[in-house]
């Protein structure tokens, strides 16, 4: 499965030639999202913000889940801690941007320390451990009422300006985080770190034996998967103005983000971006039209994805699909002609 990703780096001018096209499409996509405050109403801007923030998180997850192949479900812990650190810092009079930076650093440190412990686990145990982290942090936050406000949640100082201005600011900040996550992905993908992570993904013992410091590499990947989620969380808290433990540490979020990356193609550079865009748009559509059944429909999408798009949208062989389609039509025509 990692084959597509690896060949982009080392060999294959064929892939390279397709790259400018992909970058152009990305630029167009970002431009479109950035233009929503001018083109659409506040609802459209909200969707654009959602896309940008989830893309940043899906790209982040890709470092550990895609490149390294560790089934991490701790995204919600990183996002939630980001929410709370940002909110608490702001409530204590720390300026906005400093509070966001602080949240980013705190989450990265948390992930590095946690990684040292749970990255020793593999497969199912790692998956369970990473989910448990979300639960533990959520429980601690809910029961530590004196600091976090417990189950009642926290009010966060609102951004200055009218609703439209605030939305636009949040959108541009989220887009900036998304692009930063993308930039980091490209750098990792081309560099030593990405190569090492792919080696770990395919055979960790062999990676160790060729001289890769697997512990350090995995911690780097895990921290990278956390960092941007922390920023996103802090910005999200400032945007919505109120956070509580259930919302910040949701199990749904922690599974949704990997699903978005898988939908596009885990371990690829552009996969998480495509997957998130498709997922959020589908989700919005179902929310709007089938409110009562939206969860079941999301479940249906997941089941569909596992069976029909196991490698993600970007790993589909479109040329073959197209050929098959043409061949089928040609057969039909000749059958018709024969009649």
């Amino acid at each position: 499965m990692g084959g597509d990703g690896t060949s982009t780096k080392l060999s294959g001018p064929a892939v390279l030639s397709r790259k400018p096209l992909a970058y152009a499409a990305l630029a167009l996509w970002v431009g479109l999202l950035a233009a929503t405050p001018l083109l659409g109403d506040n609802y459209t801007v909200r969707i654009a913000i959602t896309i940008a923030m989830f893309t940043a998180m899906a790209l982040s997850w890709n470092f550990i889940g895609g490149f390294t192949g560790y089934p991490s479900f701790s995204t919600a812990a990183f996002f939630g801690i980001g929410c709370y650190v940002g909110a608490l810092a702001q409530r204590n009079g720390i300026p906005l941007v400093v509070a966001w930076t602080l949240a980013t650093l705190a989450v990265a440190l948390f992930a590095a320390a946690l990684g040292l412990i749970i990255l020793r686990l593999k497969g199912h145990y790692f998956a369970i451990g990473s989910i448990a982290v979300v639960e533990v942090v959520r429980l601690i936050v809910s029961s530590w009422g004196s600091v976090t406000g417990g189950g009642d949640g926290l009010n966060v100082p609102l951004l200055q300006g009218g609703p439209e201005a605030v939305s636009a600011i949040v959108l541009y900040v989220m887009l900036a985080i998304m692009l930063a996550a993308f930039g980091a992905t490209v750098l990792v993908d081309r560099g030593r770190l990405g190569f090492g992570l792919r080696c770990i993904n395919q055979n960790e013992d062999a990676a160790d034996m060729v001289g890769i410091d697997t512990t350090r590499y995995k911690i780097a990947a895990y921290s990278l998967s956390a960092l941007f989620c922390g920023t996103v969380g802090a910005v999200y808290a400032s945007w919505v103005g109120y956070i509580d433990p259930t919302d910040s540490f949701s199990i749904l979020l922690t599974v949704k983000v990997p699903v978005m990356a898988l939908l596009g193609g885990a371990g690829t550079v552009f996969g998480p971006i495509v997957g998130t865009g498709v997922f959020v748009l589908l989700e919005e559509f179902f929310w709007a039209n089938f409110l009562e059944w939206n969860r079941a429909i999301l479940g249906g999408i997941i089941v569909f994805l596992i069976f029909f798009l196991p490698g993600g949208i970007l790993r589909l062989d479109y040329r073959r699909l197209w050929r098959d389609l043409l061949a089928r039509r040609a057969r039909q025509r000749s059958a018709e002609a024969a009649e």
Partner: peptide, 13 residues
Amino acid sequence: PFPQMSVLENVAA
């Protein structure tokens, strides 16, 4: 080996 990598990539690792 790293099964899904090319022979060259394996040795390059």
